[in-house]
Design a protein around this nucleic acid. Sequence first.
DNA 1: ATACGTTTCAAACATCTGTTTACTATGTTG
DNA 2: CAACATAGTAAACAGATGTTTGAAACGTAT
Lengths: 216, 216
Amino acid sequence: MLIDAYGETGAKVLTTAETLFAEYGYAGVSLRRITAEAGVNLAAVNYHYSDKQSLYTEILAYRLRQLSSVRLDRLAEAEARTGGGTVPLAEIVDILAQPFLQPDESILPTFGPASRRLLGRALIEPLGFLAPVLAADFQPAVARCGQALRRHLPALPPADFLWRYSFVVGALHHAAAALHDMKTLTTGLCANEDSAAALRNFRRFAVAALTSDESR
Amino acid sequence: MLIDAYGETGAKVLTTAETLFAEYGYAGVSLRRITAEAGVNLAAVNYHYSDKQSLYTEILAYRLRQLSSVRLDRLAEAEARTGGGTVPLAEIVDILAQPFLQPDESILPTFGPASRRLLGRALIEPLGFLAPVLAADFQPAVARCGQALRRHLPALPPADFLWRYSFVVGALHHAAAALHDMKTLTTGLCANEDSAAALRNFRRFAVAALTSDESR
DNA sequence: ATACGTTTCAAACATCTGTTTACTATGTTG
DNA sequence: CAACATAGTAAACAGATGTTTGAAACGTAT
C-alpha cells in the first residue's frame, strides 16, 4: 500500500498507477488502463485525485519526499557527528545512492522497484507540470549533498564541479531506471534487481569519479 | 534536412517530428501536432511513413546508425593504427562520447541538439517496439567499445566491469538528454548546449571512473 | 494533348482520451 | 428512524487520437 490515508480503492489506484507510470510513462498510460488493472471504477481516479495530472504528481511528490527525507536526515546526522565538519566523501555518495538504489526496508517499506523506476524516469524526462514538485521535494536534498561534496573539491572550478556532479547524479538515475533489466543489457552477466551489486559498484564508481584529479 | 531521399514534405515531417519527439516523447506528441507544426497535411505522415510507429522508428534508426557508424569507424581506425593492439582508454572514451555530445559538423552535419536529446531519451526509456532497432543499430557499437575497454581492466570481475561500464554509458545518455537545460539544473552556473564543456568534463570523469582501483 | 504515376488534400472513420453527471450504496451521527 | 456525508458506480460527454478514403493537383513521358 502506498499511502494508507486512503481507502482500499484509492490505495489500489495509487499502487497500480505507480507501476504503470514507471513502465510506460505519464502519457503512455490511460486512466482506463489504470482503473481496469486496479479493478476499480473509472471515475475513482477523478473522485479521489481530481484528475490525471494530480494523481501522477501526488505519487511522485510522495516518493520524492520519502527519498529527500532520508537523505537529509542522514546528512544532518553525519554533519552533527562531525561537529559541523566535513562528512567523508564516500559517505555522501552513499547518502545519495543508498536510499535510491536499496532503501532500508524498515524506513521506506513501500519503496520498491516500481518507485525507483518511476523516479528514475521522472527525473530524466521531467514533464512541465511537475517542475514545482521537483524544485520543492527533490532538488533541495540534492543541492545539500552537492554542497557537502564541494568541500572535498575546493580547487575545482565551480562549473567543472557541477558537470562532474551532474554526471554522478545522471549515472545514479540511469542505474535506478535500468536496474530492472540489467540482465538483457549485459546479455545475462548481471542479474535483474540486484540492488546490492548496483549500490556496491556505484559507490566505488562515484567516489573514483569525484576524487580524481581535483585540481584541473 | 534529415534524410534528403525524401521530398520537401517528407523531410519537413522528419525534422519537425524529431524535435517534438525529443521534447515530449513518443506518446506525448500527436500526428496532428507534428503535421501542423511542419505545415503539411495530416495524411502526409501515413502516406510517407505508413504509421506513427514507423515514423519514430525510422528517425531513431537513422540517428543510431549515424552514431554507431562514426564510433565503429573511429574504433576500427584506432585498432588498425595500433596493429590490433590496445587502444588507449581515453581514446575509447572519446570515441563513445564525442560523436554523441559534439558530433563533427563535417561528418554528421544534421546531428544537432534535437538528435542528441531524442537518442538520450529513447535510450533511457526504450519503448517495446524499438528493441529490434536498438539491438541492430546501437548495441553492437557499444559492445565493441566495451570490449576495447575491457582490455584495460582485465583484473575486474566481469559483472563489476559491466556495472561500471553501464554507469559510464548511463551518465553519457543522461548528459546528452540534459545538455539543453544545464542552466536551470545548475542555477545558471553552466550554460545550455555547451557541448564542449560537457565533452571535456565527461572525458575526465569517465577515465577516472574506469581506471580507478582496477583490482577490486 | 493524353495518359500515368506520384504527391497532396479535405473530410470522414472508428476508437480512445480525460472528465462529468446523476444515481445508488454504505456507514455514521443526530 | 431519519439525516447525512462519504464512497462507489454506470452512462454519457466532448474532444483528441491514429488511420483511411476518394478525389484533386502535379509533373512527366508518351
